[in-house]
Design a protein around this nucleic acid. Structure first.
Length: 645
RNA sequence: GGGCCCGUGGCCCAGCCAGGAUAGGGUGCCGGCCUUCUAAGCCGGUGGUCCCGGGUUCAAAUCCCGGCGGGCCCGCCA
């Protein structure tokens, strides 16, 4: 990938040091590539070991015994960037010239200003990010919250890199889940919500109650034909579901009571729901109306939550529209004439196993090496299509409508198989470019301490309640500190804390969400970073002028100031890595270190009160650098900047 | 049964892919610091068999092999 305006002070320093060492080693008649040396330079664990260190055995074993000689050779040769070199237990410890660091950093900061560290691509790409796409049957829970935050992050990464990004939400309104909700919704005559509940929360309860009653009906039917041995187990399951229903009832008694009056659990409720899925897919007027209404009511609630989070979408795509547009039908007929077409237990399917035999293709499509690929069933025997089939059509649509070079599906890691099948199916049907440019950005699930989550049973922690609780804590803390915070600032602090919790853990790891802990507002969170930024901004606005980069006292670059300068100098590289690897947690670790060094320095060293002008300029340059670094990181992570905290 | 992921102080997490110095943070607990740029902060202390066992290496939390523990996937669900 090529980038514009490369201006990376730390990388330049490493290259320069690499050259200096390579020159010295050359006089020992050993030839090494300066670039390689630069790549091997690492950050010493302690300041006593200098600014950069080279483990000599990594370069060459023979050099280890010459460690002391090399150190003095580098020192004698002199270099614009090397101040001093020492040999400590086979490490070459390098102290950089302060003037070099200051000059490189000042150049970068004054040249790029607020753009410092952001590397734009030479050729912008067109990127679609599909994320959240939670089924419109209940409010967003924190699992979808993780999706929302990560998807937003990916979109931001590309936006900041100069790409054109389209954010899409796939409204999966054709699954069995929605049919269950529609069933209950119609049975109750399109009920209104009580005053104290948001629509998505209210309808989420309706959905859970309906699902549970339908499931009970299913089990009761099974009981009729069950053997003596089976019936005991089934009865226990029914009892468990009755318990769930009772719990749901406790939240909204009237709702469940009237639902029980209109849905007879002993009748074949399941078949009625199945009928609904068919009518929906066919576009039956009588149900489509109620269906779209209830879906939009839930969606309005979800949207409100996303807005509170500061997460926005360009397009909302209804799955039902996709089917009715005929796109899914086209995919089906294309599949029928494909060489991979097969019947699997009498259902139309694609035999992708053959295709997946090629290791090269797996590599190309990012299909895990040992993942077994079963046939992809395209439709039920009643003719209704299945999710992945519709997703094939949707993927084609996402690519074509935006002329996308790449499409991200931000989807839970548990869907690795269907996502792999999706890419293989696209390839099988001749959509080779689409198949290779579709990225499954996978993230692990969110578990809540002491709760097994289930949408079907209304057992979840919602994003709304977490945000509300966080906001309450922020207010409480503000009162304690005697600070008057505007409501929008409260929300910004609260939602940033939520995002931070979602972003600071690697997406590949299961996130154990402890509601008690997440709502704490304390150090080691976004609040700490926001606070640090507010301090830096406070100084800058109090100073009220542009920093004078041409007159900096580089002799003053010692202690925490030096540490901070080197961290700021590293930002462009950190940024590039985070963008390339889509790893928000790396950026967060870096920010925490930067904030720690900044605060520790801030506490001990007066900045504006510094009497010597050139030293004051140096300090201000550091404050400015830290400010720009944190602000640009916030842009990438979607955290909010607050003026006062 | 097969496959993938995870295991790091009491709790949470970074480091592992590209092996390097005494394993970093946070939280918790104990103590100290506000007449000076925001104390949601700073400083000090406390706390670790990097799941276990082998192997490779001058060097292993990191790579390889074998276990153990936890999660996920293998549906005419999504």
């Amino acid at each position: 990938m090529r980038y514009l305006s490369v201006c990376e002070p730390y990388a330049e320093l490493k290259k320069c040091v690499g050259r200096a060492i390579a020159r010295a080693v050359a006089s020992l008649k050993v030839s090494i590539d300066p670039e390689v040396v630069a790549g091997m330079l690492q950050e010493p664990p302690k300041p006593e070991f200098g600014d950069l260190a080279l483990p000599l055995p990594r370069v060459s074993k023979e050099l280890v015994e010459n460690c002391g000689d090399i150190a003095s050779l580098v020192g004698e040769a002199g270099s614009e960037c090397v101040e001093k070199v020492q040999c400590v237990s086979s490490y070459l410890n390098v102290w950089a010239r302060s003037s070099y660091i200051v000059e490189k950093l000042a150049t970068a900061l004054s040249k790029l200003g607020r753009e410092y560290g952001i590397t734009k691509k030479e050729k912008p790409a067109r990127v679609v990010v599909e994320f959240v796409s939670a089924n419109p049957v209940h409010p967003l829970h924190i699992g979808s919250g993780r999706n929302a935050v990560l998807g937003d992050f990916i979109a931001r990464v590309h936006e900041l890199s100069g790409d054109l990004v389209e954010r899409r939400y796939y409204v999966n309104d054709l699954g069995l889940q929605v049919a269950n909700l529609v069933y209950g919704y119609i049975k109750l005559g399109r009920p209104r919500r009580p005053e104290f509940l948001k629509d998505d929360h209210f309808l989420g309860l309706l959905y859970a109650a309906t699902s549970t009653i339908v499931d009970i009906a299913k089990l009761k039917k099974k009981l009729e034909t069950a053997s003596e041995a089976e019936s005991g187990e089934i009865r226990r399951e029914i009892d468990a579901l009755l318990g769930e229903l009772f719990r749901i009832r406790s939240k909204l008694p009237d709702l469940v009571d009237s639902l029980l009056k209109s849905v007879d659990p002993s009748r074949d409720a399941e078949r009625e729901v199945r009928n609904l899925t068919q009518l929906l897919e066919l576009g039956d007027k009588s149900v489509v109306d109620a269906h779209r209404e209830v879906v939009n009511r839930v969606l309005a609630g979800i949207r409100e939550t996303l807005e509170k989070l500061g997460v926005f979408f360009d397009k909302w795509d209804y799955e039902s529209d996709l089917v009715r547009s005929g796109l899914v039908g086209e995919v089906l007929s294309k599949a029928r004439s494909s060489e991979y077409y097969m019947l699997h237990k009498n259902a139309p399917a694609l035999d992708l196993a053959k295709l997946a035999e090629s290791p090269e293709l797996r590599e190309l499509l990012g299909v895990p090496e040992h993942l077994e690929i079963p046939p992809l069933i395209l439709a039920r025997s009643d003719g209704t299509t299945l999710y992945t089939t519709r997703d094939i059509a949707y993927t084609i649509k996402k690519f074509s409508e935006f002329s996308a070079d790449r499409v991200y599906n931000v989807v839970a890691i548990e869907q690795t198989l269907p996502q792999a099948q999706l890419r293989l199916a696209l390839h099988a049907l001749g959509y080779v470019r689409e198949a290779t440019s579709l990225v499954h950005y996978a993230y692990e699930m969110v578990n809540v301490k002491g709760l097994s989550m289930s949408g079907r049973r209304a057992r979840y922690v919602t994003v709304d309640e977490v945000l509300d609780e966080l906001a309450a804590r922020v207010r409480e803390l503000a009162v304690k500190r005697g600070v008057n915070l505007a409501e929008d600032v409260v929300l910004k602090i609260a939602r940033s804390a939520f995002k931070y919790a979602m972003l600071s853990v690697s997406p590949r790891k299961t996130l154990v969400f402890d509601p008690e802990q997440a709502v704490e507002v304390k150090s080691g969170t976004s609040t700490y970073l926001q606070y640090t930024l507010a301090r830096a901004n406070g100084i800058m606005s109090r100073y009220g002028r542009e920093v004078e980069f041409s007159e900096l006292d580089s002799e003053g670059l010692v202690g925490k100031r030096r540490e901070l300068a080197l961290l700021i100098a590293r930002f462009p590289e950190v940024f590039r890595k985070v963008v390339a690897e889509l790893a928000p947690e790396d950026l967060i670790s870096y920010l925490n270190r930067l904030a720690e060094v900044f605060n520790s320095w801030y506490d001990a060293d007066p900045i504006l009160a510094e009497p010597r002008e050139e030293l004051r300029n140096l300090k201000l340059a550091l404050v400015y650098g830290a400010k720009v670094v944190i602000e640009n990181s916030f842009k990438l992570l979607g955290l909010d900047i607050v003026e006062r905290i």
